[in-house]
Design a protein around this nucleic acid. Structure first.
Lengths: 331, 331
DNA sequence: CTGAAAGCGCTTACAG
DNA sequence: CTGAAAGCGCTTACAG
């Protein structure tokens, strides 16, 4: 039972495809009676213009994909409502204004089949090393850009999310009123972690103390982070501040602090990166960083458009990250 | 500067389009040297297969749009990270598994041009009366379904979000330990408000007291809701519980309660509908309703698929809404 | 008021 | 190892 085509409908109505086309588009006059007959017949036969054909013929909007390669286990659940979705929302707005449709690629199960994903371009959010989605698109010759540099793929144009600057911001803020600052990042090798860890190494070197840093498995979520933080704090009782870029992990640290009777901020000062609901609505509220994700999303789309058109990208200025100081890091 | 086509590339490489096609698809053997030449040339000429043409020829994935008609002012900002984005995330997962790409239609500025939005189907989230997006798609003959019935458009298939049951759940829970329950909804005419208001009318009638209900302008957000709640509580001091389906409004009510020195829950008991970050991370945490949005999203997509194929929809069973009792409504 | 025909840019039997 | 040709389902000059 395949859908009927314009030719079949035309035949049934005793007119030409031309007239059918015009009956629907209204781009030229069609005898009202003829039109009525066509419309009625179309309804009966279940005819609808094939958007694929129309797209080819008239151009239509290009389609771009937005994807994150966070493993399914991590991105599923309420976690997926953060960073990625804020970018998605902003990107959708920009995309529409640039005459593009933004298509959301969900977190992938390892075996999901991507072949049907026929798009004009793709944006990958914070790709990790050997990112599966990134490889998929780029190996098919689909123009790709990333938000956050793709580690090991310097050929992929990317929007800088200023992870080094962001890390410095958090570290210096925490350092100003603390004895010793620790760091908790994630295990996956994404550029933001890499830069943050490097910034932290530099920071501790400057201050002349040895680094206390931990990586948590992303799929473990808050509980895993809580356990890790507890360990870290027990082993390093002089740590009185923690830089925890991943907001879910920061929430876990909050739990650990409670457990250890180290009230935040008096007993432990805390800052995270993404200023989402998790940071804003935590108790106490978390100090975070405004990354200007709306600007980032817009820049990514324009970068992608340039790549799709084979043009030189217009560099976008993105406002420097801004610290949003809240109770969790009060002096 | 239009992109080069397969014919141009073939000509430049001195081969047929057939060979070029195969050089890229790998679906039949091509002399390695020829292939290398083609690929090199393609790179130089910036050739890339036109996805539109490919889609028409091979089928490819269908594209469906997910849209909400919340006015831009409301849906923008962090508010947009709630209900709609949770549905989007779930829908994207289901869509992919059904071989469909989910395209996000952002909140629309009143003048935005939709013509390029050439999709195979559309899902509208909680449409209001005379919903612009709904009319747009349905008038173009694009199959549309809604999440939450479309008021005044009983012809549009929809996934029931069980607003009456949800409202009863909240009202009876609040009623069990309160003298008198008030209601705050929104001004736009969406089905969920309509059903909730009707359920409230029935509820007050059963209890034998007169209703105290208010509608807040959605674009006013939390502050507007706070002001409205303050008024309502001042004028009706015997109201000791409020049913506030819109989560942003519930947060506003929290502010009002603080201002009026009516601590929640002791001085005022409160419940909201959508169990998102706002409810979970409020202080005190808000009693809310699990609407099973993942199931709702899946049902909507399957309903849409049926509509696109002209088949009878397979009815999906969606779990009944479940109250998630939290501190805000403690007895 | 309406049609015949070209063409959008691919892919894929069919043929050699 | 490779090509010529048909065709996916529309839209749109061109013509009458």
């Amino acid at each position: 039972m395949t859908r009927s085509t314009i030719v079949e409908l035309a035949k049934a109505a005793g007119v030409s495809p031309t007239t059918v086309s015009h009956a629907f588009s209204g781009r030229r006059y069609v005898d009202p009676e003829t039109k009525a007959r066509i419309v009625a017949l179309a309804d009966k036969m279940g005819y609808r213009a094939n958007p694929r054909a129309r797209r080819l013929r008239t151009g239509g909007a290009g389609i771009i994909a937005l994807a994150s390669s966070m493993p399914f286990a991590v991105a599923a659940g309420p976690a997926r409502l953060g960073f990625l979705m804020e970018i998605a929302a902003a990107a959708a707005v920009t995309a529409l204004s640039r005459h593009l449709a933004l298509c959301l690629v969900p977190p992938l199960e390892p075996d999901s089949n991507l072949d049907a994903l026929e798009v004009d371009g793709a944006i990958i959010v914070e790709p990790m090393v050997e990112d599966r989605l990134l490889e998929f698109f780029s190996s098919r010759g689909v123009p790709v850009v990333s938000i956050g540099r793709a580690p090991g793929r310097e050929d992929i144009p990317s929007v800088d999310i200023q992870s080094t600057a962001t890390a410095r911001l958090m570290l210096e803020h925490l350092g100003a009123n603390s004895r010793r600052v620790g760091l908790i990042t994630g295990e996956q090798r994404r550029n933001s972690y890499i830069e943050t860890e490097a910034a932290y190494a530099a920071f501790t070197a400057e201050r002349g103390y040895s680094p206390v840093a931990l990586r948590v498995d992303e799929s473990g979520g808050e509980p895993e982070a809580a356990a890790a933080a507890e360990r870290l704090l027990r082993n390093n009782p002089d740590i009185d501040a923690l830089c925890v870029p991943v907001d879910a992990f920061a929430r876990g640290v909050l739990d650990a602090a409670r457990l250890l009777d180290r009230p935040v901020p008096q007993g432990l000062r805390l800052a995270t990166r993404y200023d989402g609901m998790r940071a804003k609505l935590a108790t106490p509220q978390l100090t975070a960083v405004n990354l200007h994700l709306d600007q980032v999303a817009e820049a990514a789309i324009d970068l992608l458009i340039a790549a799709m058109e084979g043009k030189e990208p217009q560099p976008h200025a993105i406002a420097p990250p801004q610290l949003v100081v809240r109770e969790s890091s009060a002096a």
